[in-house]
Simulated assay, not measured.
Amino acid sequence: MGRSEPRGRDGSGVMRRDRAMADRREFLGWAAALAALGGRTSGSGTQEGVGAVPIVDTHVHLWDLSRFRLPWLEGGGPLARDYLPGDYDEAAEGLGIVRAVYMEVDVDPAQHVQEAEYVIDLCRRRVGPLVGAVIGGRPASEGFGAYLDRFRDHPEVKGVRQVLHGEGTPPGTCLAPEFVRGIRMLGERGLSFDLCMRPGELRDASRLVDFCPETAIILDHCGNPSVQSADLTAWRDDLARLADRGNVACKVSGIVASAAPGWTAEDLAPIVTHVLDRFGPDRVVFGGDWPVCTKAATLRQWVEALRQVVSERSEAERRALFLDNARRIYRLEG
């Protein structure tokens, strides 16, 4: 499904020209981000001012329903339409998002290869800010190793995710021996696993991590607590236990989708603050979770609310959250 690389003398020239154009767009993107955010550069080259840090969005969903089947959307609802790269560009305009990582969208497993090839092509052509992808996969499947090896020479692929809170994934799924074997395979290949699960199963996450100490694991959506929950005690304790594992990072994403109408940044602050305090400044990354975030907020509203929550933290901590950690954890170029 992905576009093949140009071949031959003329094709090589096209590739060099496209790469040069992409590099120039990236440079201009950084400059535009700083200008749009009102950032200032000091003599030491560091940015000053709250919110002046350009953003790497580590959690961008895209889907074309004429191309892919998403079983979870077949019941309809506000998300049951196409969300294409141009739509994301419009949603992200002026926010200073200079790079982004595609996050798999739980397509029919029979289309995993096609989805991966599609997004690899987007990354290679530098469509919007996309530079990497977490592709869909089934770690417990018999052919998981061969599936990973199919993308061995595709540096755009950074990791794999299987959503563990949907139908067909009962509690304990991540602890099955076959699943653990698959997560270990990821570490052996230098790939990460995005862990997206029910908040009540975070103790299982800690056990999974203990079984797979050589695999980098990123916990999506702060472990999926609800912003509207009256009691976050169990989530707080289980997240703290998981944070003790050094090969786990946490993605500050997704939580706004559970907020009630009329929510404010103060409603998000307890969850965000606990995550940042427990994981520390070097193991947290930002994720927009667009378009799922639009259940309760535009991408701009979510970004601005998070900037408000972390506004009292140091510039170094904000830079780590929004930019530096993502580049390291997802092994992005530059």
Results as ranks from 00 to 15, higher is better:
Gly2Trp: 02
Gly2Ala: 08
Gly8Leu: 09
Glu26Thr: 13
Leu28Asn: 14
Ala31Gly: 08
Ala33Gly: 13
Ala33Met: 00
Arg40Ser: 09
Thr41Val: 15
Ser42Tyr: 00
Ala52Phe: 05
Val53Glu: 08
Thr58Tyr: 04
Val60Leu: 02
Ser66Thr: 14
Arg67Tyr: 04
Leu73Trp: 00
Asp82Leu: 07
Pro85Ser: 10
Gly96Leu: 07
Val101Trp: 03
Glu104Val: 04
Asp108His: 12
Val113Thr: 11
Arg125Lys: 15
Arg126Gln: 10
Val131Thr: 15
Gly132Arg: 01
Gly132Cys: 09
Gly132Pro: 04
Ala140Leu: 00
Arg152Gly: 05
Lys158Val: 03
Leu164Asn: 05
Thr169Val: 12
Pro177His: 07
Pro177Gln: 04
Ile183Gln: 06
Arg184Val: 08
Gly190Gln: 07
Ser192Asn: 12
Met197Ser: 08
Glu201Thr: 13
Ala205Asp: 04
Ser206Asn: 05
Arg207Phe: 04
Phe211Pro: 00
Trp235Lys: 07
Asp237Gly: 06
Asp237Gln: 13
Asp244Ile: 00
Asn247Gln: 14
Ile255Glu: 06
Ala259Arg: 03
Ala259Pro: 01
Ala260Cys: 04
Trp263His: 02
Thr273Ser: 13
Arg278Cys: 10
Arg278Met: 06
Val284Phe: 09
Val285Tyr: 10
Phe286Asn: 05
Gly287Pro: 11
Gly288Asn: 12
Pro291Tyr: 09
Val310Cys: 10
Glu312His: 13
Arg313Cys: 06
Ala316Glu: 14
Arg318Trp: 08
Leu321Thr: 02
Phe322Tyr: 14
Asp324Glu: 14
Asp324Asn: 13
Gly334Trp: 03
